[in-house]
Write a protein that binds this DNA or RNA. Sequence first.
DNA 1: GCCGTTTTCGGCCCGACTGTTTTCAGTCG
Length: 606
Amino acid sequence: MTNQEIAKLLSNIAAVYQLKGEDRFRMMAYEKAAESIRGLTQEVSDLWKDGKLTTIPGVGPSLASHIDELLRTGKVKHFEQVLKDIPASVFPLLEVPGLGIKRAFKLVSEFHLNDPKTVVAKLLAVAKAGKIASMEGYGEKSQQVIIEALGRFKKGQIKENRMPLPYAYTMAEEIITYLKKCPHTIHALPLGSLRRMVATIGDVDVAVSTNHPKDVTEWFTKYPKSVNVVETGEGGASILLSNGRQVDMRVIVPRQYGAMLQYFTGSKNHNIKLRELALKKGYSLNEYGIKPVGKTQNSSRSDRDKTQNYNSKLKIYEFSTEEAFYHALGLPWVPPELREDRGEIEVGLTGKLPQLIEQQDIRGDFHIHSNYPIQPSHDLGSSSVMEILKEAQRQGYEYIGISDHNPSVGNHSKKQIIDILKRRRSKFEQIIASTKSVRVKLFVMIEADILPDGILSIPDEGTNYLDGMIVSIHSVFSMSKEKMTERVLKGFSHPKAKILAHPTGRILGKREGYELDWNKIFAFCKKNNKALEINAYPERLDLSDKMAQEAIKAGVKMAIDTDSHAAEQLALMRYGVAVARRGWLTKGDVINTMEYNEVKKWLNNS
DNA sequence: GCCGTTTTCGGCCCGACTGTTTTCAGTCG
């Protein structure tokens, strides 16, 4: 049983508790556990085998015993009891936007829709026949909303389709540049998952601080790429862009800007944890500031510091910056990338948040494809080595690695491959020697396929013409975890193989990654001084933030690479750095923050 | 049902929006 299936089951139980309305807090406990399992990096079944279920946040003795029963027998008596009177057909409806358990149950009961397989189609028919509007608590409007939501659901749009981070980031960047041209804009920043640099983004939200909200809102609605103003009001506006995406802008006066940024940056779980912390200190948090609640506590240092920001009319402390907001709660400013409730608040309270890696710490990029005619098994890059070197210089790099794919194995003999690599090396050396204007150092590398049997696609003799190798999986993705781990470790064992590229092979929105025994991979990397890659290419962002965090906990070094196929793609580095920051990485965890000479030693295993 | 910088008992995040309401229920982030 997968984590997602277990989480789904717990969510369904939570929904039923909510429906029954008996115990709100038990409902929340189930939901919290489900959420926690959804975001887990380990398999629940592995934890179960090790007897460590209660180490999952939100899982205590009771849930642990239910999960144990589930994994042993495939069912849970208690859950069956809870679900006894609930038609299974309500659960598919929970995926439909706008429907919760109460409405789903009411609709299913009213129209006797008991088959989970047909419930969506049948409910749609009932709605179109106008039978919902006459029910108590419903009207024409809600009937229409249900029809539209069900229609979208049938088309497979369960959730809003999320876009890769770089796509959303570029959109937001353009809009913020535009907003900053408005003379009344004081500050402007993205909000939500975009500000936290999550790998995929649902909505683009931005915040603007200004003393003239109306003028800024009007300016925003005139954004050149806007095709429609969806709504506009006191707090901001929403526009629809020609690419079909909606952008929301919120405006706020400068003295409340900090609180608003904090509130809408989230994540939800970070904010929940923060509010719990605030409550213990006698405060309640909202988007406008910090509000004293209940019995006044004896005045602490931070209370006095806040006094000057107290708005007696609103009975609230106001904050123009996030820094001040966090400080008022006894915390250092928490970088947005960390705000996922993965321990950042607890660690923050001890004052020991990590000094996260920054873009300017990066001194090079190892994974770049050039247009050198290597006759590869996969795609060639589109820029020449010289163009790439010049771009690298613009980025301020000390060194790069050109890592073209290996010559295709099917179309070349071993000898031919060796000859190609030999010629390539002398050509690259010639290029370097021929120019004085480029100071960026070049590592002659290859991205070598690890073939299904674990053999590398480069004959041993060919590696003499390389400074180092990136290795990766590009074929036969469906292997068992054990076999795949064996394959990777065998290929990665070659002394010249130093980086495992895009380690899970995932393609966002298209392909799940293959499974590996990460404990073995991590231990191997640490022992043999090899690195795992954070691949910054938009559809990859692989390793993920969570896995990168696990890796460095295990003492593994990372390399952040762009996998560029054109010189201008070197700029994708920022997204790799974002993943690294979300994984709590510091400069010291990343190979390509090292100086050239150190990298050279590392590549030579010396 | 979980959990511990006031707690092993007694708490558990907060507010907006929408549609249907004339004081609220449901859903969402």
